[in-house]
Design a protein around this nucleic acid. Sequence first.
DNA 1: AACGCTAATCTAAACGTTTCGATCATGTCA
DNA 2: TGACATGATCGAAACGTTTAGATTAGCGTT
Lengths: 339, 339
Amino acid sequence: MLHVAEAARVSVATVSALINGTATVSPELSQRIEQAIRDIGYKRNAIARSLKMGTTRTIGLTVPHITNPFFTDVVSVIQQAFDRAGYAVMLCCTDEDLNTQDDQIRLLLDRMVDGLIVARVGDGAILKRIVDDANVPVVLLDRICEGVDTDAVVLDNQRAVFDAITYLINLGHRRIGYITGTSDISPMHDRMAGYREALHAAGLPIAEELIRFGNFHEIDGYNATMQMLSSHDRPSAIFSANNPMVIGTMKAIRDIGLSCPEDISVACFDDFPWSDVFQPQLTTVAQPVQAIGEQAANLLLDRLAGNRDAPPRKLLLKGRLMIRNSCRPHGATVQSVSA
Amino acid sequence: MLHVAEAARVSVATVSALINGTATVSPELSQRIEQAIRDIGYKRNAIARSLKMGTTRTIGLTVPHITNPFFTDVVSVIQQAFDRAGYAVMLCCTDEDLNTQDDQIRLLLDRMVDGLIVARVGDGAILKRIVDDANVPVVLLDRICEGVDTDAVVLDNQRAVFDAITYLINLGHRRIGYITGTSDISPMHDRMAGYREALHAAGLPIAEELIRFGNFHEIDGYNATMQMLSSHDRPSAIFSANNPMVIGTMKAIRDIGLSCPEDISVACFDDFPWSDVFQPQLTTVAQPVQAIGEQAANLLLDRLAGNRDAPPRKLLLKGRLMIRNSCRPHGATVQSVSA
DNA sequence: AACGCTAATCTAAACGTTTCGATCATGTCA
DNA sequence: TGACATGATCGAAACGTTTAGATTAGCGTT
């Protein structure tokens, strides 16, 4: 900018005024300056600007795994929204690891991001501390956090799983396996609650051996399914509370020589683009990813626009059960799915 | 830092020296400073540091669509690699749009990223200019670019498609539909060349009506497939040069009342996590996503480590044909796939 | 002609670091 | 004991912006 100012024989203040439109500058100086900018190929240094202004027009986004199709879609939507608003987004994947997450959030705050969208991991103690003394707005995505009182957009997980399990119960299933991630994050906790509630509402007992915990990965779903299917009194249906784990479930069913939906019904949380085209077409709980991403972005953008003191807003969205052909009436051997 | 210095009754220079280990500071001052840092909860401002140092420890990454499973995986790998190296990554999705891409690259350069990994879009003219006068290292991912002479890691696309088409030919297919994206990016160009080469090598004619162009999206694959299948002399096999488009292909096959692989064989470029578990299990060309991501990251990290003047390095990786059960011998009606 | 008002421009300080060179003890050696 | 190297610490400039406040010029009023 100094060079531009010299070339145009004006002060840097005038150059700045012209670029930002913060003051009127006369036509002849404008022209000289614009010419100089072109000649020199000047680009404003956003870092220097950020230092002075105290704002980077950059936000941080952390998710557990970008390869989980739910997060893939949500990240995509959020990225687009901030792109439209002229913000850059720094993406971090925490790999479901608490320490990684803390490091990454610190890294983002060091870089002075203007705001944070986080799909947290692990217990919320450190996150709470970070959120408290970083004074940037934070919106919680997908996973709320005890004691961290900030904007959030989450699904009504309990209701969604309740509906799905009730659907299976109505198909006649009595022993329904349930594969979940660790319960220390709210969606897993709430989904489990939905499972229990549905069984309870139907007057069915809760068989603890049908509830298996994994670490969100395919292999965990595989192992959990293997264990359940090897028992003498195996479930007639399995619900996986997480999408990557259901791949493991399907592989286990195949490897053990059974097939879905003939021998066992399967449903899972989180829809994916292929679910319509391949067999079995998996019955899933679809989250409104577009809405979730947009709402999260809007909440943050609103804070960034200056609305700092409004009380925390919690958005609760509804899931939708996508009924396809991976679940059959219990005991049915015919092709038809009619209950 | 000023506050820390005051609290510890030292100069800011000493604080900086201690934090960065750039000079020895006596035990008692060290202790006083560390205490002050803890008391105040001081965090170094990475923006100010970047301004002074001329480096942000941040890189920019642009891809067409993060929801394309190939890019999902590669982004994930790259993100992890830079995370390990202490870099942040700014992610942009260009949506296959040239203007968007240019804007985003400019945005990234304004923010003084230390390097750029780009899976480009459109013609390379502007990209070339940007790369030339931004003096940050750039590595091209997946798509090389005429005239832009810089590090790159790409697949041997021609060979990969040659192998896939040859496989179909060996199954007895003579009329093989080919669905591709626009040819202005190198992978699409090279894959098409592989298609033509394979037909040519087998002495088969190239039927131009069997070659359809789309814009990488599911709907394009759907329309292209619909057109081909509606013709009186439809192909017995279809190869889709892009993964999202194959979903459209499968939907079109279903909607038109045919089935795969009984009536028509299908294969496509880019593997995806579900391909093993659902029917038909799609035969695909798998890219070594892990290697691609790591190599791209390594090339850039090497430049960032100071190796600026080495000549451009082009890495050519090999694809792998994952043969599953979505392709049958032409005319076969039995279950077995034995050619 | 003196005055005030407005619009255009400039000067200089500030943002929070890093780092060069200067300063100042302290101990070593002739 | 004086000269000198050594090691620790500091002062101040610099990175490239923004912006508050000062300055200047131009113009209409009285």
